[in-house]
Structures are given as structure tokens and as C-alpha cells.
Amino acid sequence: MPTTRNGDVSLYYEADGDGPTVVFVNDVGYGPWLWGWHYDAVAGPYETVVWDLRGTGRSDAPDGPYDVETLAADLEAVLADHGVGSAHLVGAGLGGMVALQYAHQYSRARSLTLYCTAGSGDAVDRDALDALALDAPSSLDGAFSPAFRGHDPDLMDQIADWRAEEDAAGAARDAQAAAMTAFDAPPLYEITQPTEVYYGLEDPVVSPETVQSLSADLPRGTGEAVEGRHCCYVEHAPAVTDRLLAFLDEQTG
């Protein structure tokens, strides 16, 4: 599978499908398992690109600090290596911040779909974010509602296995979390791509009010509420993915 480099950091990515390119950008610590619920629906009518952020999975894990601007430069290296002229960006949490920075700084972003993200790291609850870490007790509690966790214990076990194999941990995960909490968005009025912003009604990491404010400050932003916590877009993946596909279809004509 392909790798590219940003400076001395090797970055791993995978691509599948055919059509306009959709790039998924991970949240703090999470590996590409995060997009499994979206991937099968999107790959086919669209080309999908999933990549491991620095510090995660098969990408290098250099010493910190990390920042969102550097992660956006990593994304540019991936898209340039893969020969992508334009792309729809789908980012969660930290990945949404990377998408915002990328859309402002580079020319390839065609649309943005943002899940549970904020325009400022000051609005991120660092304690709640750290409670999601792989080595934290009850690390899925802040990600999924009790009803979702209780409905399918086997799925929770599967997610735990995926996380053990793919997630960032230790200093690399801390560096990603620090990048998220230090983020200060570029002028939002200058980010003119069509943008849909989703927020979890019970998200302990980024409050609904924070995400609503972000969507209101984006010239072409809309906000959508989803029942659930920080990974509400996984918990309600069928409905969220249907909306994502409809949005992508609107942007590609």
C-alpha cells in the first residue's frame, strides 16, 4: 500500500473506489477503523482515501509537539502523492480541524463534512478528550451512548480489538490531543467551501453550542444535530452516511 513523506515523516494511506475523491481525516488517537461504517457506502461511486495521521498506525510517530498546520501539510503530501486534483474532506474532531486548516491553506478542498469539531481548541474539554484514550478506563463511554454500547456487546469487543491494533497511544496520542486543544482556526469567513457540520447532542468533548457556533460562522456552513456522544456519526452511521452521500452528490452535480 502507498506511503509518502512530509519532510522526514512517512505517511501511510489507502485508496479505493472510482470517481471524485473523498478523503477521511481521523480524530485524536483513532485509526482508520473509525470510517468503516462510511467506507463501504462511499467507495464505489467515489474514490475514498483513508490515511494514518502521524503518530497513528503505519505512519511514523515522531516526537511532538504536533500542530494542526503540520497535519494539514501531511494531508497535502498524501493528496499530491496520489495525484488528487480536488477532494471532498470528511473529518472528525481533530480531523475536522485539519480539514478547516487545509481548506484555508491549500487549493484542493472541494467541500467539507465535519463531525464533532470546533473552531478553537479552547472549546475542547481536554479531560473528556483524554477519557477517550485507548488506555483510559471505560474509554468508550464518552464515544457512544449507553444504549448503543449495551445493544451489541460483540461490536464493542470488535471495536476494542480494532483500537488495540490501529489506534495511537502514549506520547503520540498526547501530541495529537495537544494539537487539537491548541488549534486556532484561520478566519472562518475565508473558508467558502460548502460545509456540513454535525454535532452530538451529548458529546462531552465538544459541546453542541460550540459546533453550532462553528457552522454559523462558516459562510456556507449548515449544522445538523445527531443523537449520541463524540462518535455519534458512528452510532447513527446509516442515516449520517445517507446524508453524506446526498451532500456529495449535490456538490458533484
Rank of each mutant, 00 (worst) to 15 (best):
R220C: 14
F144W: 03
D60L: 00
L112Q: 00
N26V: 11
L79Q: 04
T3K: 12
D127K: 14
G253M: 07
E165W: 01
A92T: 13
D16L: 12
P146L: 05
G142A: 10
D18M: 15
L100K: 00
E69Q: 11
V22L: 03
D60H: 05
S145Y: 08
C231D: 05
D16F: 12
D167E: 13
A73L: 14
D40M: 11
F24Q: 03
L134K: 06
E209F: 05
A160Y: 07
V90W: 00
A15F: 06
W35M: 06
T252A: 12
A103G: 11
Y12V: 04
E227I: 15
L71F: 06
G64P: 03
T117L: 08
V211R: 06
M180T: 01
L245D: 00
W33Y: 05
V205S: 00
A41L: 14
A133H: 12
A237K: 07
A43D: 12
L245H: 00
A128P: 01
G7D: 07
T241K: 08
S207G: 08
D8G: 08
P153D: 02
D40C: 15
A185C: 06
D249H: 14
E14Q: 01
D63C: 11
D18E: 15
Y46K: 07
Y115F: 13
Y189D: 15
S207W: 04
D203L: 12
R58M: 03
T56C: 09
D16H: 00
A160F: 05
V197H: 00
G44P: 07
F144I: 09
P186F: 01
G95C: 11
V226L: 05
Q158S: 14
H151W: 15
E227L: 12
P208W: 08
G119E: 00
R149P: 13
A43N: 11
G85C: 10
H151C: 14
V240R: 10
S111A: 06
A182C: 01
Q101W: 03
L188K: 09
V84F: 00
A15I: 07
V49F: 07
D52S: 13
G55N: 01
H236K: 07
N6S: 07
L34T: 10
G221N: 03
L214W: 08
R173G: 14
Q176E: 05
A109H: 08
D242K: 10
S207K: 02
